[in-house]
Design a binder for these strands. Sequence first.
DNA 1: CCTGTCTGTGAAGAATCCTTCACCACTTGT
DNA 2: ACAAGTGGTGAAGGATTCTTCACAGACAGG
Lengths: 218, 218
Amino acid sequence: MAHRILVVDDDHELRETISEILVDAGFLVANASSGEEALNILAGQTFDLVLLDMIMPGLGGQEILPLLKRQAPRTRIIMITAFATVENAVAAMRKGADDYLTKPFKVDELLTTVRRSLEEARLLDRGLQVEKDSTFSCLANSIRRDILKLIGREQRLRFMDIARHLDIEDHTKMNFHLKMLRSADLVSQDEHKNYVLTSQGARILACLSQIAKDNSPQ
Amino acid sequence: MAHRILVVDDDHELRETISEILVDAGFLVANASSGEEALNILAGQTFDLVLLDMIMPGLGGQEILPLLKRQAPRTRIIMITAFATVENAVAAMRKGADDYLTKPFKVDELLTTVRRSLEEARLLDRGLQVEKDSTFSCLANSIRRDILKLIGREQRLRFMDIARHLDIEDHTKMNFHLKMLRSADLVSQDEHKNYVLTSQGARILACLSQIAKDNSPQ
DNA sequence: CCTGTCTGTGAAGAATCCTTCACCACTTGT
DNA sequence: ACAAGTGGTGAAGGATTCTTCACAGACAGG
């Protein structure tokens, strides 16, 4: 699915140039000629990335940036500045921009900056997802669900007690599953090495029993 | 974990003999000398299997059986009858016994019957679990979660529309995941081959978004 | 001190799960 | 009729996950 990009610039000609380059590169592009218009458009739909001119009549990039970040925190923002100065760059980044371009820029420069920024976003998203993935893949295994239920019932249990309760002879197998549960932050160990549920683990367990309950009347 | 077995017989000597055999075979054994005592014990703890003499003074096996089945439906019950008659066997099975032994029996006979019955219970339990396992292993994969969420949002979708929405080029890959979702009974197809959520799928989706919500504020 | 139990690690292989490819029948539009 | 798109199967290989085995430090009890 093509990425959606919003170009915000009061300079009509530059805006059109940028749009054309991006459209040719296969992106879905929308234009805004002022900060106010940009905010309106962003209220109605989401974009993956916004190219934002720092200096515009009315609301400039500097002013919109924090508003924009609050409204759509996951949208990437690339500032466009007239001059490459350290102050400009620092100011932009500090306000929440993810990258910046200095005018004038070449076609390649624009595209690589945009693509790199989108790629970073993707990696970041995936990073956030890792947590959820590990949660669900933990639940995929019935041994781990049993461990979770057991700890939920008994509150706190030693390693070998879990093994005995669940009739698991090979303790390294247990260890494997416990490690997964720990890394998914569903269980943890207290100061005496007892295994206990984390708050996340308790929530999941509630959810789990809810699903099981729904299921049982066939 | 060793299986727990309750031996119910008014004949003291036979009871002790059976107990000894079972204990030696590694089971955890408890004794009851009457039907009433058996019911008392069963009220306090659960057993994997009950060996029940058909004919006893007071409450006999015939009378206890239905009570016992209601109180602990997952406990296996083996009736002990004095004579091997078709009537005895049929009567016992019809009332809910899982197997039966005829007096007198050899050590091996007792043990194989007990072990076979426990094994059957295990398989039966696993059969019940299959449903839940497929549900959770479906959720383990992020593509399938995405499909579920997408269908939840759009209500009904054609095969290729799902592929396009999720930017999946290889439709056979999609098919693989859809097949898993179907076999877990989380999605199904309506008369026009649109994919829709099943009621189970809708429940799971609600659960899923609940977990995601809990997760997001880190 | 020695022995046994507890709680681990790391590596190798088995079992599952996922992706990809080649192919096919069916519908739809032209 | 024929091309393009849809929805599907089966088999092969790659990637992950799970189990098992060999080993080892810590610690408690005799």
